[in-house]
Simulated assay, not measured.
Amino acid sequence: MNGGLVVDDGFIYEEEKHLTVHKTCLFFANDGFTVYDCKGELVFRVDSYGPETRDQCELVLMDPHGRCLLTVRRKRPSLHHRWEGYLGEGTDGNKPIFSVRRSSIVGRCSVTVEVYGNPGEEYQIEGSFANRSCTIFNAGKESMAEIRRKVDASTNVVLGKDVFSLCLKPGFDGAFAMGLVLILDQINGDDYVGDAVEGHPAIDE
């Protein structure tokens, strides 16, 4: 199975990779996301994810050393919550490498991801990000990554939605997957009360 390179080949793994994503409060500057591997090592971070950044509708994904891997930006105007991803920091003068849009503006829907290039690729994200239960599928309907609720191994208790798991299948670009997580968070938000896509139920509370 090979999802191909989209952002950075340093985050493509030969074996299935489980990451833990921590989402921090959005009301203060320098908040955002931190992502760790199973050994507790920092893999990704998103800083300055406060109100000013949200107003700009632009987020930057960084590696543990602060190197800018990917910038995601909302395209306006857009009825389908279209977002675009750019390599590195900033979008001025750069061409997007992928775009993300909701497949419908009403009712139950999935999210479509189009990766530009030769050849291009398309992915579908189905499920409910609000419930931390969704899957990224490639065009062949293979699961390439999953977002799940995190369970504390010692107590078997399901943790809150600010801590969740990102499971990467072998060959799928982890930086690309985390960029999609940032966009899903913006599209849905914690106040989004959408049902899971039919055939892909959300995890019960």
Results as ranks from 00 to 15, higher is better:
80 H>Q: 09
70 L>K: 10
154 S>M: 15
117 G>Y: 03
55 D>V: 03
157 V>T: 15
112 T>K: 08
45 R>H: 15
78 S>W: 13
86 Y>L: 00
39 K>V: 07
61 L>P: 15
157 V>A: 15
143 S>M: 14
67 R>T: 02
115 V>E: 00
144 M>W: 07
65 H>I: 13
129 F>Y: 08
133 S>G: 00
95 K>Q: 13
61 L>I: 15
97 I>L: 03
58 E>K: 14
142 E>I: 00
154 S>P: 15
40 G>A: 10
80 H>W: 10
133 S>P: 02
128 S>N: 05
60 V>C: 10
146 E>N: 08
89 E>L: 07
92 D>P: 08
135 T>P: 02
132 R>M: 01
64 P>I: 14
83 W>H: 03
150 K>P: 05
105 I>F: 05
88 G>C: 05
68 C>W: 05
77 P>V: 10
63 D>Y: 08
115 V>I: 06
118 N>H: 03
38 C>D: 13
80 H>M: 14
85 G>R: 13
85 G>M: 08
153 A>G: 08
146 E>D: 10
91 T>S: 06
134 C>L: 02
75 K>P: 09
52 E>K: 09
50 G>I: 10
138 N>S: 06
159 L>T: 06
134 C>Q: 06
40 G>P: 04
125 I>V: 10
103 S>R: 08
127 G>D: 03
71 T>G: 12
47 D>F: 07
86 Y>F: 11
48 S>E: 07
80 H>R: 14
109 C>W: 04
113 V>P: 05
37 D>Y: 05
108 R>T: 15
33 F>H: 14
151 V>F: 07
111 V>Q: 02
111 V>C: 01
143 S>D: 08
84 E>K: 00
116 Y>T: 04
65 H>A: 15
84 E>A: 01
142 E>S: 07
138 N>W: 05
76 R>S: 07
56 Q>W: 08
92 D>T: 12
60 V>R: 11
65 H>P: 08
84 E>Q: 05
38 C>A: 11
124 Q>C: 06
40 G>S: 07
94 N>K: 14
41 E>Y: 07
39 K>H: 06
46 V>Q: 11
99 S>C: 03
88 G>W: 00
79 L>Q: 06
81 H>D: 10
92 D>N: 11
137 F>W: 06
143 S>C: 13
54 R>L: 07
100 V>N: 00
35 V>A: 14
78 S>R: 10
133 S>N: 01
42 L>M: 15
112 T>I: 14
99 S>W: 02
82 R>K: 08
153 A>Q: 12
46 V>M: 13
43 V>S: 12
69 L>C: 07
94 N>H: 11
119 P>C: 03
138 N>L: 02
132 R>H: 00
111 V>R: 02
97 I>G: 01
136 I>V: 09
74 R>F: 01
